[in-house]
Design a binder for these strands. Structure first.
Lengths: 148, 148
DNA sequence: GCATTTTAGTATGTATACATATCAAAACTC
DNA sequence: GAGTTTTGATATGTATACATACTAAAATGC
């Protein structure tokens, strides 16, 4: 017979995928309610550029853990929305330095509190102590994985 | 001034995204080492079909928490690889019932232990106790989120 | 200082992921 | 039981995500 229980849904990999999925859904909903349509990655890019204005795309990709191909598309779309500017680096003709436009800065300022706010709802049903515990464990695991 | 630290990387949403990313990278690497090129979603689909042979695509989508449009593509690719068969349901002409082919069954049997094995490496740097704790917390959070 | 290698960005192709629209079929309503 | 609504699947369009290949420019090695 072949009606054993599937094992996938109980595996860490699946649970992580599912949590990621729920997280992006909540993000999309709250950002939409706030009158915007930024994706999590686009928000992360704006946030990174606010901290390091004028870095190039490769540096930006590193900061938010994407590859160069992916960041190329993200930067394209942010530029089309008028939220960032892009120009050839004076020091390195291969590189494009990127920075927030005033509109990008305004958008980020508007959304920062919204994004802070929604984080708690990504992990519903956890007590404050469990929430902190979860964050500590995820942080530990990702740091260990990145150390390789 | 604008060189504050970015806040994104410290947020739960980002950590979850990063963990998901690391998880799929490890999955891809180990599956490749085992001589296959299945993705996490394709594996989950095979695993679900082994437990419920002959369900339709909508039911399959529910089981692994994808929407119908996404599952359509996944099923297309699995069919092209010869791992599943698809035919119109006798009871409902709209529905397509899906099941593993012998080759799909063999692939699943081959990969099941590999996938079991790699789970532990998705969360490196955690002790056994922390690992269990993490799983319990993720499970609790996803169940709570799905309850809405 | 020239040849080799590395790096920045883009282009291309595949695979999720999801919203929306459409078609056909089933379920429901009165 | 005809009309409405819901449902299963597909089609289309957008956005990651990543591998690979390519061009141009910079860094390096000897």
């Amino acid at each position: 017979m072949s009606d054993d229980q599937p094992i996938s849904p109980t595996l860490p990999g699946h649970l992580i995928r599912r949590l990621h999925q729920l997280s992006t859904q909540i993000f999309a909903q709250r950002i939409k309610d706030a009158g915007s349509d930024l994706t999590p990655v686009q928000f992360a890019a704006l946030d990174a550029l606010a901290a390091r204005p004028g870095i190039d795309q490769a540096r930006l990709a590193e900061m938010i853990a994407k590859d160069r191909a992916t960041i190329g598309g993200v930067v394209d779309r942010l530029e089309q929305k008028g939220l960032i500017s892009r120009e050839v680096s004076p020091e390195d003709k291969r590189a494009r330095v990127v920075r927030l436009t005033p509109q990008g800065q305004a958008t980020l300022s508007h959304l920062l509190p919204v994004v802070q706010e929604l984080q708690r709802d990504i992990l519903p049903g956890l007590s404050a102590a469990e929430y902190d515990q979860f964050l500590a464990l995820v942080g530990k695991a990702t740091r260990a994985a990145e150390a390789n």
